[in-house]
């Protein structure tokens, strides 16, 4: 007879399939994928790029730790999501941003957007983008001063007053001044990232490398970035504002934060649709809004707001792309829809 009582059986509820994948490992992959762009930023803009990113990361982790501590909730700093938020916020800010400004952005992103709504997985828009939008609304001057990387590096301390600044490619494209833009930066410059812009957005090449790494590691699906970049490519190819179609399309794709947004922002789990079909719709929506804002809006760049607007539509997209349950007959489904 088997002694059932002494058998070491542990009954647990499903899922029973285990994997070594945790929030921490996923976030670590995202951090790794961002490192090439960060190294380029340091090379391009100076050591300030690194110190600004470090300050932002430490700020995010501190606010996350502090909030969880004060609210007596389980500590969640270890899952590294705050690190990703901190890095992304620094990536979408100009390198001349003072340290105290980025800390205010950290506070808004972590405490207001993320923790007040319930912490990781419950934020309704991307925290880093919300932090950037908040900073842009509060400190428009600081957030739109772009250092000219060809002339000088950003000083470790001190603001934009001490550096030579330059207009970003998008500023030229807003006015349709393709001749001026081509005289300043070639397509290769744009692709490699020898232009002015936010800290981490300049090098399309290294961001694509990071994005491909994430897709290869199965951290993100290809649907969102491909749909996003594809939509922008098609629209800018069909409706160029100046110059030839191909040229305009390439400058549009490699200028601004499109690559950063498509690979690292629009793919945030908490604020993007669950289904692959939904992710395609999400990406197309982001692309449409980006082009609309760039063409008709008052801002030069539309990536930040387009992703935030689509973030708010995620619940709706999820609702209409819900897959049919196994075993449901088509006629049943029609009846259910008619009800």
């Amino acid at each position: 007879m088997t002694d059932y009582k002494n058998l070491k059986l542990i009954a647990t509820s499903n899922p029973h399939i285990r994997s070594s994948e945790t929030t921490r490992s996923i976030m670590l992959d995202v951090v790794i994928a961002m490192v090439p762009a960060l190294v380029w930023a340091v090379f391009c803009f100076g050591v300030k790029a690194l110190t600004l990113t470090v300050v932002s990361v430490v700020g995010c982790m501190f606010f996350e730790w502090l909030y969880r501590k004060l609210m007596k909730k389980p500590q969640s700093v270890g899952d590294l999501s705050a690190v990703v938020t901190g890095m992304l916020l620094a990536f979408v800010s100009p390198v001349t941003t003072p340290y105290w400004t980025i800390l205010i952005g950290d506070f808004f992103a972590i405490v207001v957007v993320k923790q007040l709504f319930g912490g990781i997985g419950k934020n309704f828009v991307n925290p880093a983008l919300a932090g950037r939008a908040f900073l842009l609304g509060s400190y428009a001057g600081i957030m739109t001063t772009w250092v000219d990387p060809a002339v000088n590096k950003a000083p470790l301390l001190g603001g934009a007053a001490d550096v030579v600044t330059a207009a970003t490619p998008l500023a030229y494209m807003k006015t349709g001044d393709m001749e001026g833009l081509k005289g300043l930066y070639s397509v290769a410059d744009m692709f490699l990232g020898k232009t002015g812009g936010s800290l981490g957005e300049v090098s399309a090449l290294l961001l694509i490398v990071g994005g491909v790494y994430l897709i290869w590691r199965k951290v993100i699906n290809w649907q969102t970035p491909v749909a996003y970049i594809g939509t922008v490519a098609v629209l800018t190819f069909l409706f160029p504002k100046a110059g030839s179609s191909v040229e305009w399309m390439l400058y549009s794709l490699f200028g601004g934060g499109l690559m950063l947004g498509a690979f690292f922002m629009a793919t945030d789990y908490a604020t993007s649709p669950v289904t692959k079909k939904g992710q395609l719709i999400f990406g197309i929506g982001c692309g449409l809004f980006t082009v609309f804002i760039r063409y008709f809006g008052s801002y030069n760049e539309g990536v930040c707001y387009s992703i935030m607007v689509m973030n708010l539509c995620v619940a709706l997209i999820d609702k209409y792309t819900k897959p049919t349950r196994f075993g449901v007959v088509k006629s049943d489904k029609k009846e259910a829809a008619a009800k």
């Binding site: 105290w100 205010i104 207001v112 908040f134 609304g137 509060s138 400190y139 428009a140």
Partner: peptide
């Protein structure tokens, strides 16, 4: 003058 969080004087700030 350079420090205040301008967003708080906007409607968003009122809601917050």
């Amino acid at each position: 003058e350079q420090y205040p969080v301008g967003m708080l004087t906007l409607p968003v700030g009122g809601f917050l």
